[in-house]
Amino acid sequence: MHHTSSFVCCVDASWLDSQSRAGIGWILYNPQGRRVLRGFSSVAPVATALEVEALALKEALFHLRRLNYVDVTFCDDSMLLYRHLEKIKKMPHSVPGCLEIQSYLDDITALSLNYFAFKFICRNDNSAADLLAKSARSQNLPFTISWEY
């Protein structure tokens, strides 16, 4: 069964180095392409850019599930993260392939429960989420979810 999602959530992260706080950001769009909701936060330092990308996706997924959204396509510009998610989709019970972010991948898989899809997008198509993540990191912003009007 293949169908088109009604909502799209663009997710991104901002990372400088393993000693500095990172930032995450996501924006939910309705089927007409209008912004519905956004979330962002400065987060504690993590080891790699891939780790904060996985954290950003997990947080967006968690909060949209908590708000009872289903059938959302999550878009991210991290090709490496997308490849790991595709590998899990093709072989769900295989041996872990990325120990660095395996706990995030496990959480993402558990949270998605086939209600959500993941899609790689180019960096240019993810500029709004990128800006949110960079602002959250550089301004050390607290966790925030807000409706867009």
Rank of each mutant, 00 (worst) to 15 (best):
A13Y: 00
Y115G: 09
A54V: 02
D71F: 14
S42Q: 05
V70T: 13
V46L: 12
G25R: 08
K90T: 12
A56S: 01
K89V: 11
I108D: 02
R21C: 04
F143A: 13
C122K: 04
A22G: 01
A110S: 11
L57M: 05
D71H: 14
S6M: 12
V46I: 08
R123T: 10
F143H: 09
I108H: 05
Y29W: 15
M79Q: 09
L67H: 13
D130V: 08
L132V: 01
A49R: 00
S18T: 12
K90A: 15
Q139I: 03
H93P: 01
C122D: 04
Q19Y: 15
R35G: 12
G97F: 02
I101E: 06
L37R: 04
C9M: 07
G33L: 13
L111Y: 14
Q19V: 15
S138Y: 04
L132Q: 00
K87C: 10
L85V: 11
S127L: 11
I88M: 08
T73I: 10
A133K: 04
E59Q: 06
S146W: 08
G23T: 03
V8G: 10
G97W: 03
L37T: 07
I88Y: 06
F116P: 05
K87T: 14
L28D: 11
V46P: 06
S5D: 04
R35W: 11
W147S: 07
T73D: 10
Q19H: 15
F118H: 01
K87Y: 06
S112P: 03
W147R: 07
W26C: 14
F116G: 04
A129G: 05
G39S: 03
K134W: 08
F143I: 14
G23F: 04
G25E: 11
E100S: 05
V52P: 00
L28Q: 10
H63P: 01
K58A: 00
S20N: 15
D12I: 01
F62S: 14
Q139A: 13
K58D: 00
Y115K: 11
T4G: 02
E51G: 00
L111V: 08
A54Q: 01
M91A: 14
I27W: 07
N140Q: 13
S103P: 06
A60N: 04
R66A: 14
N140R: 12
D12Q: 06
S112H: 10
I27F: 06
Y104G: 01
R66T: 15
H84P: 07
I145H: 14
R21L: 03
H93Y: 09
H63V: 02
C10D: 08
L105E: 10
G33A: 12
V72M: 01
F118R: 00
K134A: 10
I121N: 07
H3F: 01
A49L: 01
F116N: 09
V8Y: 05
G33D: 13
C10A: 08
Y104D: 02
E51N: 00
R35L: 07
L113Y: 11
A47Q: 03
S103N: 10
Q32D: 15
K90Q: 15
W147F: 14
L113F: 06
D17R: 05
A136H: 02
Q102Y: 06
I108Y: 03
Y115P: 03
D71V: 06
E59F: 03
T4F: 02
M79Y: 12
L28G: 08
S20H: 15
L61Y: 02
L61M: 07
D76H: 13
L131Q: 05
